[in-house]
Every structure is written in structure tokens, then in C-alpha cells.
């Protein structure tokens, strides 16, 4: 098992954003994480990435307990993540952004630059463009490039494809596939069902801070509990 989280909870005061969530991801999988807004997906993600300290529970990465390790230790161990709201380094060029990621495993500038150039090419960005001038979809792409350059074994994508037009989606999906083929295990939070349906073979559905269903995308969308979570109780009741 590459990633295993058991009984993870995160409380903000009285509110439990994550309430006893579990996840287990095998090396080489693409796992989808879906759920209505406010289900606690991002908080759970932040716990997995070391950005938020869980109130309870344990998180193991490749058998090592990383529950209380800081985010930089997660990165060194091989857990990479993107942010729901893209946080690119706006004063720097696209290439320099990606180099910051590349420096993690390539301390020398020229090595890092070479590696970053390859990654930038792979993601279809323009190396010399200032990050400030990018639109939101390109920023998300830059985030992917940046974390990819840091050489992760597990990539946590937090709505990286949100905001793309239907025309841009296939290219983005192809990019995620390419990253997967490079041997990177992926957990992806996404609202666009097309993305989940085409990319993943296993989906976890989050609601009110815990996993309420899991299975193939086809199974999950027919699940009673899932429909209720998205549409509310009685959605299935025939109209009178």
C-alpha cells in the first residue's frame, strides 16, 4: 500500500470537517475523490499533504507514519500536491516556478533548469512567460508542472482541471494520463464527472467528512447514499 489513512478527523472548534475518513491507495492507481461542496475533501487533502494536522487518525506513506510531519517532509518523502486555489510564484517566470520544484532532487542550477525545461515542454507551457500573466487554467497547469518537477511518487490533484472549457479538457486529461504513465500514483479531487469517469477506475465519495461510498465510477453514481448526498433525501421518490 502506497498511501493509507486511517480514521482521520479534523475539527475546527465544534465543527468536524473530516470525521473518521479512511483511504488506501495502491502504487500505480488513479483514485478519484468526489463529493458535494463542503464535504471536507480539501481539508482531508490538506491532512494527507501535511498542511493540516489531523485531530485524530494516522497517515502512512509507504509504511512510514507521516501524520505529524510538516509539508516539506511530505514533499521529500514523495507526496506532491496542487492547490484548489492556484498558488503560483507570480514574480517568477514559468521556468523559474518549475525550477523551484526541480531543486528538491537536483540541487544544482543547471540540472534543475534542464529538468524543468523538459517538464515545461511536457505540460505545454511557455518557459519564459511570467507566471503573473497566466490565466487560471494555465496556473493550474503550472502547479502540476511545478510539483511534477519535484519528482513525486504520489500526486494529490485538488480540482486541477476545474475551470477548463470542454474543449480544453481532453488535453488536460491526456496530461494526467501521461503523468500516470510516468509511474506516478494519483489521487484526484474533481467535480467534473467526465474527468472522473475517463481517468479513474476507483472512486471514493466524500460527504460530511467521511467516505460514504466507494467503487467503480459506474457503481458509485448509482449508489443510493451518493445520490442522497448530492441531491438530498427524497430525490429518488417518484413525482406525485
Amino acid at each position: 500500500m502506497l498511501l493509507e489513512a486511517r480514521n482521520v478527523s479534523k475539527a475546527f472548534g465544534d465543527f468536524r470537517a473530516v470525521a473518521g475518513a479512511d483511504i488506501a491507495v495502491e502504487q500505480g492507481e488513479i483514485v478519484g475523490l468526489i463529493g458535494p461542496n463542503g464535504a471536507g475533501k480539501s481539508t482531508f487533502f490538506n491532512c494527507l499533504a501535511g498542511d493540516t494536522l489531523p485531530t485524530t487518525g494516522r497517515i502512512l506513506f509507504d509504511g512510514v507514519d507521516v501524520t505529524r510531519a510538516p509539508p516539506e517532509a511530505h514533499a521529500r518523502a514523495g507526496i506532491g500536491r496542487t492547490f484548489q486555489v492556484p498558488t503560483t510564484f507570480d514574480d517568477m517566470s514559468v521556468l523559474a516556478n518549475v525550477m523551484v520544484g526541480a531543486f528538491l532532487r537536483r540541487p544544482h542550477r543547471n540540472d534543475a533548469r534542464e529538468h524543468a525545461r523538459r517538464i515545461v515542454e511536457l505540460t505545454g507551457l511557455r518557459a519564459d512567460q511570467p507566471a503573473r500573466s497566466l490565466g487560471t487554467p494555465s496556473r493550474k497547469r503550472l502547479e502540476i508542472a511545478r510539483v511534477l518537477a519535484s519528482g513525486p511518487r504520489l500526486l494529490l490533484l485538488d480540482e486541477s482541471l476545474a475551470g477548463l472549457t470542454p474543449g480544453e479538457l481532453p488535453e488536460a486529461i491526456a496530461l494526467v494520463r501521461r503523468i500516470h504513465r510516468m509511474g506516478v500514483t494519483i489521487v484526484i479531487v474533481e467535480h467534473i464527472m467526465e474527468v472522473i469517469m475517463t481517468l479513474t477506475r476507483r472512486v471514493l465519495v466524500f460527504n460530511q467528512g467521511r467516505v460514504i461510498a466507494s467503487g467503480t465510477p459506474e457503481q458509485v453514481v448509482r449508489d443510493e447514499a451518493v445520490i442522497e448526498a448530492y441531491l438530498g433525501r427524497g430525490a429518488r421518490r417518484p413525482r406525485e
Binding site: D51, P70, P71, G80, T87, V147
Partner: peptide, 13 residues
């Protein structure tokens, strides 16, 4: 300078 949070996520000490 740009984002400590993003920097840490990339392994910057």
C-alpha cells in the same frame, strides 16, 4: 516571498 505554503509543498525548508 511569493507563497510560503506553496514553497513548503515543494519541499523548500
Amino acid at each position: 516571498k511569493s507563497s510560503e505554503r506553496a514553497a513548503r509543498s515543494l519541499g523548500v525548508p
